[in-house]
Design a protein around this nucleic acid. Structure first.
Lengths: 117, 117
DNA sequence: CCTGTATATTTTATTGACGGTATATATTCC
DNA sequence: GGAATATATACCGTCAATAAAATATACAGG
C-alpha cells in the first residue's frame, strides 16, 4: 500500500473530504446515505469526494445490496494512520466535525434495517 | 495560535512546500538560500511557497542582515506538531526529501560565515 | 550614494479544482 | 421486464492555484 504524501494532504485539504474521513474514523463503517445526511450536502457532491478519497487509497468501499459502505482503508501505512489520529485529535471538537457526528446520531433508521432516506 | 485544518493540509499538499517544511523540521533554522540550493529550484519559486507556509502560520521568519531565516513556528497547536512528526517519520527516507537533506549537507559555506551563493 | 547580493512581490497566462445539474449504472422488488 | 432506490459519473461554466519572468525591496560595503 503506497500513498504519496502530497496526494494524501491534497485529499485532506477539502472540507467535505475531511468531514467524511473524520466520520469514518469515528464510526468504522458508514454508507453514502449516512454521510450525505450527516454532512447535509447533495449526494453527487459527497460521492465525488468519496471517489477522490478512494483514488488516493484512504478509504475502501464494500457493496451490500443497494448500499455501498465506506471505511478507512485498513492497509494504509503506519505514518498515515498517525497523521489521521493526530488530525482527529485536533479537529474532533471543532464546529462542523462535531455537528456532523451529532447529526449522524439523530438519524432514525440505519441501513440493513430499512431504507435510507 | 489557530490553524484551520483544511488550510494546513492545503499547505502540505504541494511538493515544494512539503520539502521546505521537512528540511525545516530537520534543521531547526535555515535561510532562503539554503532551501533554494538544497531543493534546486528558482529563488522566487521557493520564496512564494515559503510565503504561503508563513501565511498559514506553519513557519516564522527572522531577518539577520541580508539573510532571512525560517523555522517551524514554535507556537503551532499540539495536534499540528503531531501531524508534522508523523509526516516526517513517513517521508524522511523518500526520494526527494532524502536528496534535499544530502544536498544541504554538501553546501560549502553557511550564512553568517560568508556569502550564500 | 552607488553597486551588488538576498529575498519578496507583481504580472500574466495557463492549468486544474470545484459546484451544480443532468444522466448513467447497479440492485431490489414486484 | 419495469419501477424505485442508492450511488456514480459526465458535462460545463467558473474561480483559484500555479509557473515563469520581470520588477521591487532591503541590506551591506565601498
Amino acid at each position: 500500500m503506497e500513498i504519496r504524501p502530497t496526494e494524501l494532504f491534497g485529499a485532506l485539504s477539502h472540507e467535505t473530504r475531511l468531514r467524511c474521513l473524520v466520520l469514518l474514523l469515528r464510526h468504522e463503517e458508514l454508507c453514502v446515505c449516512q454521510l450525505t445526511e450527516a454532512i447535509g450536502a447533495a449526494q453527487p457532491h459527497i460521492s465525488r469526494h468519496l471517489a477522490q478519497l478512494r483514488e488516493v487509497g484512504l478509504v475502501v468501499d464494500r457493496r451490500e445490496g443497494l448500499w455501498i459502505h465506506y471505511r478507512v482503508n485498513p492497509g494504509i501505512p503506519a505514518w498515515v494512520e498517525g497523521v489521521l489520529r493526530e488530525t482527529l485529535r485536533g479537529v474532533a471538537h471543532l464546529g462542523p466535525f462535531a455537528d456532523d457526528d451529532r447529526a449522524l446520531a439523530r438519524m432514525p433508521a440505519r441501513p440493513s434495517t430499512a431504507r435510507c432516506a
